[in-house]
Simulated scan of single mutants.
Amino acid sequence: MSFEEMWAALRPVGRDAETGGYHRFAWTPAEVECRSWFADEARRRDLEIETDPNGNLFAWWFPPGNGRGDAVVTGSHLDSVPGGGAFDGPLGIVSAFAAIDLLRERGVRPSRPIGVAAFAEEEGARFGVACLGSRLLTGAIAPYRARGLRDRDGRTLADVLTGHGLDPERIGPDEGLLSRIGCYVELHVEQGRALDAPVGVASAIVPHGRWRFDLAGEGNHAGTTRLKDRRDPMLPFARLVLAAREAAERNGTLTTVGRVEVAPNGVNAVPSAVTAWLDGRGPADDAVRRTVAEVHEAALRAAREHGVGVELAEESYTEVVDFDVPLRDRLAAVLGGVPVLPTGAGHDAGILASRVPTAMLFVRNPTGVSHAPAEHADAEDCLAGVEALTTVLKELAGG
C-alpha cells in the first residue's frame, strides 16, 4: 500500500466525528485497532513481528544472510492525547513502512537490519507517565512503579497488561533487544512554527516534566457553610494556576495546568480535594526546577491561608537531551543541509538517547498547532518526509 492508502486506512481510527480529535489511549479499543493495523502492514511486507515484554511493537526487515544486530530502527507511537491530532506519532510509523517500500522498489539491499517500532503509551494519556514503553525498555522507570500506575478508572497497568496477554512481572529493561539496536531515527511532525522547510533535523529536546499536586480540604454543603468556616481546596488551586503562569514568565519557561480532578465534583458541594497536574518545560534544568519550586511555594502559602493540605509528587522528568551529534550532522548533510532545530516536545527518541545513538527528523506543520485537531502536515511535506527517511535509512543501513 502507498503512503496515501495507509494514511487513509489509519486516519478514521479513534477519531471523534464532531471535533475531529483523536482518542487513542494505550490498550483501549482504538489503540488496539491501530496495533492490528501495524501488524497487518508488517505482514504485508513479510516483516518479522515482535512484541517486547513492555508492549512495544517491532517489525523487522532482516536481509538474507545478515545478522540481527546493529539494526537501524525507526518509527514512533500510535497512541494520542485526549482530542489530539492525526499526525503526532502515526506519521512516523506510516512513513517508516512507506520508506521500506521505496527502498525495495529501488533495489536497495541493506547490509544492516531495519526495524519499525511502535512504542507503547508515549503520550502518557492513560497512565500518566510519558514515553512509558521506552522508559521501561531502557530502565528509566522501575518496573514495580510502572506496574502500580493507575488509569482514571482505577485499573493498574499490571491489570491492563494481563488483560492483553502480557506478563506484568516481565516488564522492564530488555538488554538483549537494546543490544540489537545500532541507532534509532524517529520521524515526527514538528509541533510548533519553528520549521520553515518541508523537513528538518532535531538538535535537542529541552528539559520537561510532570508534577502532581494533591490539595486536601473539607467537603461541605455549598448553601449552609459560612465562608470563614470553609476549607476549600479550589482556592489554593486557583492560586496555583496563576502562580504557574507568573513563575513561567519570570523564569523564561512554559507551564501548563491541563488536567484537574475535583472531589466530589458536585455543583452544590464545597470540594473535599483537588488533584492537579502541572506540565513544566524550559531551556535549562535549573529554570524548570526553579519554576516548579516557586509554584509549590505559592500553593503552600495559599493552602495555609485556607486550612488546606498540599502534597507535591514528581511523576516524570527528563533532563535536556542532546541528540547524537555525529549522527545528527550526518543526517543533515545527506539531506542537503536541512534546518537543525531544538524541540520543546518529548519523544521516545529522547528516552532511547541514553542507550543508543538517536536522531529525529521533523516534517513541517503549517498550523503550528499540535495535541489538537488543527495539527497538520501538507501531503507534499509528508511525502518529502518519506523521501528523507528513505535517504536516511539507505545511508545508515547501506545498500
Rank of each mutant, 00 (worst) to 15 (best):
E380I: 00
G65D: 14
G65Y: 05
E380R: 12
R355E: 13
R210F: 09
P236H: 09
L393I: 02
R126H: 09
A118T: 10
I93H: 07
G192S: 15
L227C: 06
F213T: 04
A98E: 10
E311A: 15
E294R: 06
V81Y: 01
A146C: 11
G398N: 06
P264E: 10
L132R: 06
N251Q: 12
Y184A: 14
R364E: 11
V386D: 12
P29N: 08
V363T: 08
S76F: 10
R109S: 09
G85N: 03
L57T: 04
P373Y: 01
G209D: 04
L10P: 00
E294Y: 04
T224V: 12
G55S: 06
G85Y: 01
H164I: 06
L235I: 15
L240C: 07
G385P: 10
A238K: 00
G89W: 01
A333E: 14
P64Q: 09
P143H: 05
D16S: 07
S179P: 00
P90I: 01
G92H: 08
T255F: 13
P64I: 01
S354P: 03
A204D: 12
N265G: 15
A142Y: 06
P283C: 06
A146E: 05
L396K: 11
L177M: 14
G115S: 10
A140K: 13
F87G: 05
R170Q: 15
P339F: 12
G266P: 00
A71Q: 09
R212M: 12
W277H: 10
E105L: 13
R150M: 13
R245C: 03
P326E: 14
G399T: 08
C34D: 02
G139Q: 14
N220C: 05
G84T: 06
E311Q: 14
D40S: 11
R290E: 14
